[in-house]
Amino acid sequence: MALLSIEGVSKSFGSHQALKDVSLNVEAGEFVSLLGPSGCGKTTLLRLIAGFLTADRGTIRIDGEDITNVPAHRRPLNTVFQNYALFPHMSVQDNVAYGPRRSGAGRVEAAERASEALSLVGLGQMGDRYPRQLSGGQQQRVALARAIVNRPKLLLLDEPLSALDLQLRRRMQVELKQLQEKLGVAFVFVTHDQEEAMAMSDRISVLSEGRIQQVGNGAEIYRRPANRFVAEFIGEANLLSIDSAHGFEIVFAPADQSTNRLGVVRPEHVRILREGDTAALSENDVRITAEVAAVASIGGTTDIHCTSLGYEIVARRLGLSDGGFKPGDKVTLVIAGDDIHIIESERS
């Protein structure tokens, strides 16, 4: 039985339907990200689980118990808020002890548990300070300590790292993941950052326009996106209309001709050869003749933008070397047949 089970949940605000028939299961100890652009419904879903909103339709269960209409303060879960929502009039210690106090612990016991939680997040010495005296990263840790002090089985995190700078953010990603594994608590982690979701999650649930588009681990979602939205939202993708496909014999249609199937090709799967260079081809390879349009080095990789059949196709090479390709060069783009993921294209 899943720890958290969401079935057919819908939620509207006025005429805006924020969530449409969403279903999702989260197992005990699992790290699940809700990933999507702003306005996709991920925060609404989190607030429904936390109990700050009530679903129009559908059920939410925790450990099999229907909590759809249970008020927030009686739900067996805790939340880390986006801007931490620490109580500014209480010391760090009192902030963290707030949860145990409310669940009936005495003053002494609550203080002990708060100290324990604070040392777990590396803030053992900060108990007497006030939230405004702490840095953003430290406040983040206090928020985390406050949320785990009652040892919930399920922790909800609403873009908890979005206010931190990049370096701190990377470090916190690692720490958060370690803490999650150490405590064995299930995380439902809202983020709009696909790299963050990829780096941390066991499974990712991609949302768009109030619907779950795809659920799977990072590799599945990257390699086999369920639809055009996922393909474009996760990583970068060349999207090419497919004219015909028999096994690996795939023929692409020109860009202005829309067909009912799309080939998704990641830039790093596009090899680029000089015209006439057929040395390293295998029979499963699909070849496209193209012309180099632009070359751009971005740190560890170099992107070569080519045009063919009216598409702009990006080939990505590791390293700073552009391989001697210049705009205007005639080239052959080579894609291994099994690197082409085929999806049904929704016609508009």
Binding site: A50, A72, N83, A85, L86, G99, A147
Partner: peptide, 28 residues
């Protein structure tokens, strides 16, 4: 809005509406 988020945090930590009012809203 920040104040409202604090009230949500209080409820999330197990405080009912009345407790939240006196411990979080009123001091703010």
């Amino acid at each position: 809005r920040e104040q409202q988020a604090m009230e949500e945090a209080s409820r999330d930590l197990g405080a009912d509406g009345v407790t939240t009012f006196f411990l979080v809203t009123l001091p703010q």
